[in-house]
């Protein structure tokens, strides 16, 4: 494991901690897309089905369990917590799941390396993760007064993706048998989706103004 990969994972973990702090600390999920959170839960479930059959390291197994646990908790809080669910912007969070899930499923079926249930679902999770942030970005555009925690959550998530690209570049040059075109392509697409957000995030940071995304 290289430093970019570790830093990327830590950013990912930190993004989830920030989100959980916001949700449980101030008892509000305002500005957070439940659709994106449910898509991430689906991504983790379909990707980590091999959790008990394909042991890589204790680190990997623990992280997988943490991601599954925390994303389940976030979805639970947003859907069922008596107080928190009242702060969910349901009317604004209108992105259609099918628009992201259906193409990911078709692409997974068309391009899977091997046709086993685990492999097709793993491929599906790669495609779906690339686009799962879109409902969140659309919701951010519609949210007036984006709070710091929400802005930082999306920023940390985008940083995680950027660091994974550095990790792949590093691995490409240091490991002979590391060639994952599908993962790389999806990863780059996913990172490009964040570009617009990053631009406005840095602009607000530089000008010391509140983050706002133009519609």
């Amino acid at each position: 494991m290289n430093v970019f990969r570790l830093a990327g994972d830590m950013m990912h973990l930190l993004s989830i901690v920030v989100l959980l702090l916001k949700i449980t600390g101030i008892k509000s999920c305002r500005g957070i897309s439940l659709k994106t959170q449910e898509l991430y839960l689906l991504v983790f479930i379909t990707r980590y089905l091999d959790i008990f059959t394909n042991f890589v390291s204790l680190y990997n197994t623990v992280m997988k369990l943490v991601f599954l646990g925390t994303s389940s908790a976030i979805v639970y809080y947003m859907r069922y917590d008596r107080i928190i669910k009242l702060t969910y912007d349901k009317e604004q969070d209108t992105f259609k799941y099918l628009l992201l899930v259906a193409p990911s499923a078709v692409l997974a079926l068309a391009t899977s390396h091997v046709y086993t249930v685990l492999e097709v679902l793993w491929t599906f999770s790669i495609y779906l993760e690339a686009v799962a942030i879109m409902p969140q970005l659309v919701l951010l555009q519609r949210t007036q007064n984006i709070d710091n925690l929400t802005g930082n959550y999306v920023f940390l998530l985008g940083s995680y993706r950027g660091l994974y690209i550095l990790n792949w570049i590093y691995r490409f040059f240091t490991e002979k048998h590391y060639r994952q075109w599908l993962v790389w392509t999806c990863g780059v697409v996913q990172t490009i989706i964040y570009c617009d957000f990053f631009y406005y995030y840095f602009l607000s940071w530089q000008n010391n103004e509140k983050l706002a995304l133009p519609a």
Binding site: R5, D9, H12, D50, N54, V56, S57, N60, M63, K64, F67, H113, V114, W122, Y164, N167, H177, Y178, Q180, V183
Partner: peptide, 10 residues
Amino acid sequence: AEDEDEKDEL
């Protein structure tokens, strides 16, 4: 088999 050892990322 080529793919097996490559699924070491999260």
